[in-house]
Write a protein that binds this DNA or RNA. Structure first.
Lengths: 249, 249
DNA sequence: ACGGATTTGTCCGTATGTATC
DNA sequence: TGATACATACGGACAAATCCG
């Protein structure tokens, strides 16, 4: 923009970016994570990969170096590049665990990592017009008769907070977590948890969060959100333990 | 896995359960966020949406109800469903801001929200074999001569921690953030920041994080990661302020 | 100013799949 | 294991409100 920056970042970089071996790394990870990849298999040659991904060979090499350090692959001069060792603990894909109690725990853990931070940011910079919207969500949860509707409004409440954080990237992360949350298999699991352990007082938690947001108290909002999700976490944890015990019989 | 879970998740799911209005909400959000959507425009009728999305009208209606409460749309009996009011503050898309200092700040803020939590979890449950791998990353950053390589190893270090958290969902979130981080436009911006403000002592931070992880001290790991990213944050913040001041001249 | 057509709002019957006995 | 009861989704029918000719 300014003259200084125009000089600084000169016309040199503007070329087709391709500059980053990070892209190569990302693509290679995708290849390794693909279901078709058996451990021990030989990858294409570096030159073939470079051609296939449309990336320079030294970018490929840098990325392979990282993957080797991670233990995802090993290379031998003259022989080739190989996957393995036998994928440590088979990097569980989401579809694998979504239907199990472990999936439930992973999800709530992810929310526990993310949402208190969102609440903290929202308390600091949210526009006041979100407060009545959140209140509406609480009210709708209250008077919802079917579970689907209640879940939808709960989800809307949490998203309103995420939006209030004012960071489009974080909102995108939240939406991703939220999409997992609505995975059909997980919904069923949550249903059976709900059946066995009653509703809990999530609504009190919601009101506490709203109060903290209105007060603009970031720490309190984060804490309230943490407590809210933590309660869910413990419910799911005891459920998961019961399940595994039942399986051990 | 076990017999119990096989019974639980039976062969029944294969049908199209269509149970969730959450799916409808997701799709409708996508429609509303699409670039072609001008504020005030009329959406298709509920029945048309139901047919288009392959979801029951009831589910559509529930989703529309949420969107109406959010202020994204408004409905009038007999008239139809309309977008607007004029999109409050035009929900900035990532492409819009990625090339600006604001994008840099959003990114570091997202990392600041996520990565300390990852470090905390990793300290508690990471397998010890990640420690030498992290040490390798630190060493490679040390002796990297070009920026691309250093960035790659830095990214690998942070990813190793994310992987150590042992939650596939959180790892996915991290990878998403990491992909943003390697956005070409952002890389250019970071380059000019680096040029103006020197390297900083990121390596000391890295070693502090590693020490906390090895000690299994979750709080310390989170704090160290927070400090590490916070330092970056302040660097970018002053840069962003300088930029805007330069623009004001 | 009137009336037909269209759209949201509301309700109910049916079918399906889940969980319990 | 088989049968019953329950919850939920879907689709159609009708009412109310609006738009347009």
């Amino acid at each position: 923009m300014t003259i200084g920056s125009a000089i600084g970042s000169g016309a040199s970089i503007a070329r087709d970016p391709q500059e980053c071996s990070a892209l190569a790394l990302e693509r290679l990870r995708a290849i390794l994570a693909a279901p078709g990849a058996v451990p021990g298999e030989r990858l294409p040659t570096e030159r073939a990969l470079a051609a296939q991904l449309g990336i320079g060979r030294n970018a490929i090499r840098r990325a392979l170096e990282v993957l080797e350090a991670e233990g995802m692959i090993w290379r031998k001069q003259g022989a080739g590049t190989f996957t393995g060792p036998p994928q440590d603990a088979q990097p569980q894909t989401w579809e694998t665990i979504s239907a199990s109690p472990a999936g439930l725990l992973s999800l709530i853990e992810a929310r526990l990592a993310l949402e208190p931070q969102l609440a903290r940011l929202a308390a600091k910079r949210a526009a006041p017009e979100i407060f009545p919207r959140i209140a509406t969500c609480i009210a709708r949860i209250e008077c919802a008769e079917d579970v689907d509707s209640a879940d939808l409004w709960d989800s809307a409440l949490h998203r309103e907070i995420a939006r209030g954080a004012g960071n489009p990237l974080l909102l995108d992360l939240f939406d991703r977590v939220n999409a997992w949350r609505h995975d059909p298999a997980l919904r069923r699991l949550r249903g059976s948890v709900r059946r066995k352990s009653g509703k809990g007082h999530a609504q009190d938690d919601h009101r506490r969060i709203l109060a903290a947001l209105e007060a603009g108290d970031g720490a309190a909002a984060a804490q309230a959100m943490h407590d809210h999700l933590s309660a869910l976490h413990s419910v799911y944890l005891t459920y998961a333990q019961e399940e595994t015990r039942a399986h051990e019989l």
